[in-house]
Amino acid sequence: MDIQLFLWNVFTVSIIASVIIGVLGVVFKPNAVKKIIALTIMNDSICILIVAVGYLHSSKARPPVYETPQASSMVFVDPLPQALVVTAIVIGLALTLFLSITVLRLYEHLGTLNFHRALRLEEEAREVELEEAGED
């Protein structure tokens, strides 16, 4: 068995496992902050997966920066996935920022971070409204 291929497979499969963990966290955790954390885990795992596509299996491969203007015979890793990931990181950051500020506002308004409890509070408020309408 090829040990290098095995290690490479462990790397990729564990990244995919953390993507799945992120998805499960977003779906099943009722707490809003934990949902945001799971979303961040998913986002960053996908970023690492994209960077891994550009990996070059060679001992001569370097980060994609020319050290001097004259050095033209250097071997670089694929720079395109890295440039894609820079954009993805900024978009993920913007998403996290907006979500966390929204969740803070939600907490101020409802006094809870749990979505189940928030929905129950809303239902109770609607029932009270209906009762009041019936009395009129």
Partner: peptide, 19 residues
């Protein structure tokens, strides 16, 4: 999972040897 993949000589992301 990675053992099974390696035994069948599959890699999810292919290992690149050149650009």
């Amino acid at each position: 999972a990675s053992l099974v993949l390696t035994a069948n000589d599959i890699s999810i992301i292919p290992l690149q040897l050149g650009l």
